[in-house]
Design a protein around this nucleic acid. Structure first.
Lengths: 252, 252
DNA sequence: CGATACGTTGATCCATTTCAAGATTGGTGG
DNA sequence: CCACCAATCTTGAAATGGATCAACGTATCG
């Protein structure tokens, strides 16, 4: 999985522009890590409004970005291993949302001071870091699209297709599905529906043989069917062969 | 409005981190412009999948970012003057959406080559540019939230509150409303509903004295009522007094 | 004057919310 | 090991929001 030489940052941009990263840049990135931590229970990495001074690389497991409004929680992003989950906090300084681990996770930290040095001295690596934050923005846009045009079953299918593909891009693929430690209520908060309705949708899709979701495991009998249900086109993930291009970024 | 010294880029980051920009950086930015153009009809600035080599600063008017799916169009972003509307194209190289002007507009162009020089030589300005792309991402997240939790009338109210506030941040405010050259169908594509339903919502809100929308003009009798309808909290816009902080970015 | 885009309206159907309650599961301490 | 608790999942019925189809009014512009 993660390269032996880069046990903590080896998945960063894997499947995207990692090939454009020089060994020296990869070394710099790995050495920037100032510590790592494991969590088995949900843990709040950063809270909305906090002034943050380090960013977090997700090494294993999943992280949610969410905004709590009174009694309701809204999930605006799901991060997978290799994601620099709050790198945007480096430029924003305060986050507009919470960052929370879910399921067993491992994270690594980078001081903003170290990132400032990169921006000062390593323009090409800076552009790669910038790219990774824009990838998140592209995913945000696709979620907006998904909400605008799809009903609840399509949104769920789209979310699952996206997550599966993102896991594959960093080498965590699985032929028949993947693990995802989200409850039905979590999925509802991600798809903008209620837990009750999500439950019915999940059951309907189970009987229709589109996808089977139970105890943190997503099983997909026929990927094409799931992708059609979610009207899924992975171009926006900037993986190989899509919008992310071969060599434009290689020299800087 | 736009500073005399910076007729094309004077609104960039105004109300946000423009105070953190040195006069020299402002000069560099203004001189990076390699041309400007006016449009009175809708004009496609960039198309999804195009390999782009320059980015566009919006000087006057409005720009939509949208994705067309078969016969349906989905608007994922609305840009106001001062926005560097496709700066993310500098790092992404290809866009996942179209960029289209709406109403009478004026835009200015910057070659990516010039941006690459900035990344190489001007780390502080680089961070400001990066920040501006992350501001867009924060707005994306708020749109996701809006779709997840609000019905059509709330979404419309939220969109109008946001746009109004963004215009004010760059000094284009107006006490009783603002101009916005979007048709009811455009608003529907932005709020993820149909033109028919948007029409009914608009009428309902008109009779309820929440907002009056006609011929490209948004009139708001009581701003508090509109903001409550859209459950609007402007913190995510990183304007003065919200998440965007005083001095953190001033030195770099 | 006719073309074309935009706004308005009604009727019907389906998706989704809401409220309320019960079943299942996993984990904890006695 | 069992009893219990809390979280999660499941189900039903009633009310609502929004989509859809179809039609008509109304600018505006060459």
């Amino acid at each position: 999985m993660a390269n032996q030489d880069y046990p903590l940052t080896g998945l960063f941009l894997k499947g995207r522009l990692r090939h454009a990263m020089t060994p020296r840049e990869a070394d710099v990135l790995e050495r920037m890590i100032c510590g790592s931590e494991r969590f088995s229970r949900p843990h709040v990495i950063a809270r909305r409004g906090d002034l943050i001074e380090r960013s977090t690389m997700l090494v294993e497991g999943f992280v949610l970005r969410c905004i709590n409004e009174g009694s309701r929680r809204h999930i605006v992003s799901l991060q997978v291993p290799g994601d620099f989950v709050d790198l945007h906090g480096f430029a924003l300084k305060r986050l507009d949302h919470d960052v929370v681990t879910i399921g067993p996770t491992k994270v690594a930290y980078v001081e903003h001071e170290a990132l400032a040095k990169v921006v000062r001295d390593l323009p090409h690596l800076t552009r790669l870091l910038w790219f990774s934050t824009l990838l998140d923005a592209a995913i945000h846009r696709e979620w907006i699209m998904s909400m605008e045009r799809l009903a609840a079953d399509g949104r769920l299918a789209h979310l699952l297709c996206e997550t599966w593909r993102r896991l594959e891009l960093v080498g965590l693929g699985d032929r028949h599905g993947f693990g995802l430690p989200l409850t039905q209520a979590d999925l509802a908060d991600t798809c903008g529906t209620t837990a009750v309705h999500m439950n019915r949708i999940i059951r309907k899709m189970r009987t229709q043989n589109i996808v089977d979701i139970r105890s943190g495991r997503i099983s997909v009998p026929d990927r094409g069917v799931l992708e059609r249900t979610g009207d899924f086109d992975p171009a926006y993930l900037y993986g190989p062969g899509s919008l992310a291009v071969g060599r434009e970024m290689d020299q800087s």
